[in-house]
Design a protein around this nucleic acid. Sequence first.
RNA 1: GUGAGCGUGGCUCAGGUGGUUAGAGCACCGGGUUGUGGCCCCGGAGGUCGUGGGUUCAAGUCCCAUCGCUCACCCCA
Length: 432
Amino acid sequence: MSRYDEDTDLSVKALKGFKDILPDEVRTWQMVERIARDIFHRFGFSEIKVPILEKTELFSRSIGEATDIVEKEMYTFEDRNGALITMRPEGTASLLRAFIEHGLHVQRPVQRLYTMGPMFRHERPQKGRLRQFHQMSVEVVGSENPKVDAEVIAMAHLLLNELGLSVSLEINSLGCRSCRPLFNNRLVEFLKECSGRLCPDCERRRHTNPLRVLDCKNENCRSLFDKAPLILDHLCDQCRDHFADMENGLKLLDIPYLVNPFMVRGLDYYTRTTFELVTDALGSQSAVGAGGRYDGLIKDLGGPDIPGIGFAMGMERLVLLMSQQQKEAGATSIDLFVAALGKAAQETAFKMVHGLRVNGLQVAMDHEGRSLKSQMKQAGRLNSRYTLIIGDDELEKGEGTLRNMESRDQASVSLPGDLDEWTGKMVEMISS
RNA sequence: GUGAGCGUGGCUCAGGUGGUUAGAGCACCGGGUUGUGGCCCCGGAGGUCGUGGGUUCAAGUCCCAUCGCUCACCCCA
C-alpha cells in the first residue's frame, strides 16, 4: 500500500508478528493447555498469574544486559509517568519477581509453580517465531537436588508424549559460577588460535559470547571444534556429581536423552543443568521447549539465596507440531439443534432453547426463518446429536419430532406444558 | 539488521510469448425433495487482479517504486 492509501484505507491490520488465533485453531490450543495443566498438577505444580508489564530493570538484571533479547528485542517504553517499562520477553523473571515479592519461600521450602501467557520480542517473524508468542513457564524454586532436575525434565518429556509429539531430549551442564569462568577462559584461548578460520559470525561471537560459538551450524566451524575444550570436561567436582546424578535420574525414569556438550543458552542466568526438547520439523526453530537451572538468579533479583530450575515451552511451536503430526483437536459437537418453522414455533423454541441452556445443554437454533432443509444443514454442520423439529402442526398437536442425527431415528416428544418440567425430561433424554 | 521468494473472490490456486464481459475447487446462499442434514445435480452471490506510477492502441500478464506476507541468516520457546 502506498502512503496515500494508508490515509484513505480504513481497514486496520494486525501488527507484524502479531497473530489472531481463530476458533478452529483455538480448540487445539485449549487441548494443549488442558493436558499441560493436568500433567503439571499431577507433579504438584500450582498455577500463578503474573503481569505482562514489568520494570525494564527486572529483565536486564535477570536475562543479562548483553544478551540479544535485552539489547535489541524488548518492547520497552516509558509509561505516562516516565517510568521505563517492558513487555515481558519471557516468563521466568516475572514469576521469580512475584515469588520474591510475596515471600513465597517462607510458606514452603520448595515451591512448584507454572504460568502461561503471551511474551513479546521484537524479532523478524518466521516459521515458529512471532513477536507476540505464548509460553508455558514452569519453575521449581528452593531445591538444588539433581533429582528435581530429572523430575522436571521428565515432566516436560511426558507432556510432549501425552500430546502425541515425538521430539528428542538433549542435555548439557553449563557449570557453576566457580567452574564456568575457568572453562570460559580456556575456550576464549582456543578460539583465539582458530582466529582467521572461523566464519564471520563466530569471529564476532568469539568476543561477544564465546559459549555461543560452540553451536554454530557452519560445517567448517564445526570441524574446527572437534578439538575445542568441552564444558563437561571442565566441571568442578560438585557440578560433575550433580550432572551425573541428574543423568542417573533420567535413566531411572527411562527417559531417553542425548548429551550435547555444544548446547548453550541465550539467557545469562542459566547454571549447571540445561536441556532442550528439539525437533527437525519446525524449519530453523528446533526447540519446542528448553530450560535449565538458575542457582544464583533469585539472589540477584533481591531474593533469598536459593536455587531454582525451570523450563519454557513455546505454545505456537507445540500447536504447529500438533497440526503437522495430525494431532489437532477434533470437531466440536452440540447436544441439540431446535429447528422451528413459523413465527409461533420460533417463539416457543426460543424459550425452550434458553431453558435447556440454563440446564447445561449445548443447544442452537436459527433465528433467520430459513427452510427446514437449511436448518437441518446447520444442525449437521454443528455436529448436533439431536434435532428437535417444531412447526405449526407440531404446536397444535403439542408434539415435536426429535431426530437422532446419527441413527436418523425419529420419535415424537411432547412439547412443554410446564417449561421447567419439560426441560428436565429433555435433559434426561438427551444426556442418556 | 541482512538475503531470497511471493502478493488474483473468505480459503487454496489457474490464468504460454500483453488483446473482447478475470476462471476453478472448497466455503457460503437458494433450489431439485410443496417440512428433514451429511452424497449427488442445478442455480446464485462474491474478486478489477496489494498500492502508485510508467511503457502500449491495449496490462492480472512488461518496467519502476512502494506496502505487505513468507522463508532463511542472526537469535530464540
